[in-house]
Each structure stands twice: as structure tokens, then as C-alpha cells.
Design a protein around this nucleic acid. Structure first.
Lengths: 121, 121
DNA sequence: TCCTGACATAGACAAACATCGATGTCCTGC
DNA sequence: GCAGGACATCGATGTTTGTCTATGTCAGGA
């Protein structure tokens, strides 16, 4: 069973990775988020959604450029939503996906040796 | 010679993920590097090595804090070296590992919505 | 030369994962 | 109410991956 109703994004737990040793829990947490984006299909999904007009896209916009079936794309999108990287907005029959603002930036912050300012728009 | 006979390790291939759609090849490439760090043990290895005195550590320094066997740690280190994130320096009987300068920062750059200056000067 | 200690490699195994076809759920139009 | 379309979920399957034990390699000392 998948953890439904994620509490929130473990997306960027803490201090930069290289500043101090991660404890086991923090490492597991961060790894889980990284696993979410460590997949070609999901990277392309993030990229396609970001580049799509209005910064949002529905499943039907995404299956064709990826060359994957609708259930597979839906699965990948769920992984990204669960990881706190995508936001899902169901409007009528369609489900529109957008990037969660700052999520990827927070992740980048943890990897970077130096904390950086979030561009904020 | 190339490090470890690896073809190459484009740790950070290109433009920020959210700027334009990734093509399939670039996505596969980036995903491979992300997979290398999308593991709790390997995240802790990076962290432990960075925090170790002199910024370097040998295998014997790393097995105990991780609670994994020596071959498993050796395996994880190899994955990180192959991904271009760690550098291995064999001195006598010991193998010392250090972070490849800028590698994680480059990765962070790709994830970040905005390119940032690499601190390593 | 042989032995010991540090590390790498090989092989095996179980868990996790990506993908698919089939099916279920929900909204909209007739 | 009924049909159709968009999306989610289910169950199955082949592949990848993390971990172990056993073994190989190599340097340094007795």
C-alpha cells in the first residue's frame, strides 16, 4: 500500500549534504525523493510539464512525447506527486499537473555545497 | 587514461531541467547519475567522506558508521566513482576517496530552475 | 618466501521497480 | 439513464538493484 496523503515534502530536509554526516533516517528520506527523479521518464515528465504552456499539462499531453502507455505515465506522475514534486489539479475530466514551486530548488540546495537563494519567480 | 575506464560521466549535462524539454538521451544520462546518489548508503558515504578530516576517507573508515559489510561499501563506492562523483586514490594498501570538486554542484545546477555560480574557485 | 591485512571482484538471492493489458471510477453530453 | 472519454488502479512479468558470502589481488613486514 502506498502512503496516501503524504504529510509533506521531504524534498529538502536539511543542511547541505556535504556539510555534516547524514543520519540514517535523513539519508533514507532524501534518497526516496531522489529516487523519484532518478528515472528518464520522470525527468522528461518534469521537463515537459515545466515547458508546457502555462506550466501545466494533462496526461493526454504527456503520453505521446514519452512513447509510454497511459497507465505507465499515470504511474510515474503519481510517484512525482507523492514525492512532493508535482501538484495535481483535477478539473472536470482532465487532470492537470504543475511543478510544486521551489521543490526542485530545495533539492538542488541539499546537493549543492553552498546554500543558494531560491529564485522565487 | 579515463577514470575507471568509464566512457564519461556527464555529471551535469546541460541546461536546467525546467528550461526546456529533455530529449530521451539526455534524460537517460541524467537519470543514471541521479540513480547513483538515490540510495541512503551512498548519500551517507558522500556525506561521511566530505565531513571526514582532510575531506578524504578510506573504506575502513566507512564500513563501521554505515553498518554494512566491506564488499557492500566497496560496491557503493564504485558506483559513485563510476558516476564521476568520487575520486579514488590508492596509496599503498589503502584506497582514499574524495569528492570530485563541483560534481554535486553541477548536478544541483541542473535541478535548480536557475543556474547558480559554482562556489569551487 | 610466506603471511597478514586492505580492498576489489564474482556469484547468488531477495526485494524493488518499470512496464504492460485489463478493468474500475468519475465526469460530461445526449 | 446511458454511452463515451480521461484518468486511476490492479495484477502479472521481466529487469534492475542492494546485500551478502566466498574468493581473488596486491602491498608490506617477518
Amino acid at each position: 500500500m502506498t502512503r496516501a496523503g503524504l504529510p509533506l515534502v521531504n524534498v529538502a530536509c536539511c543542511a547541505p549534504l556535504v556539510r555534516e554526516p547524514l543520519d540514517a533516517d535523513a539519508a533514507t528520506d532524501l534518497a526516496q525523493t531522489l529516487k523519484a527523479i532518478a528515472d528518464p521518464a520522470r525527468l522528461r515528465l518534469l521537463s515537459l510539464i515545466a515547458a508546457h504552456e502555462g506550466g501545466e499539462a494533462c496526461v493526454c499531453d504527456l503520453t505521446e512525447p514519452l512513447g509510454l502507455t497511459q497507465p505507465t505515465v499515470s504511474h510515474h506522475l503519481k510517484v512525482l506527486v507523492d514525492a512532493g514534486l508535482l501538484h495535481r489539479d483535477k478539473r472536470g475530466v482532465w487532470a492537470y499537473f504543475t511543478l510544486v514551486p521551489g521543490a526542485l530548488d530545495s533539492l538542488a540546495n541539499v546537493l549543492s555545497s553552498r546554500g543558494m537563494a531560491v529564485p522565487a519567480g
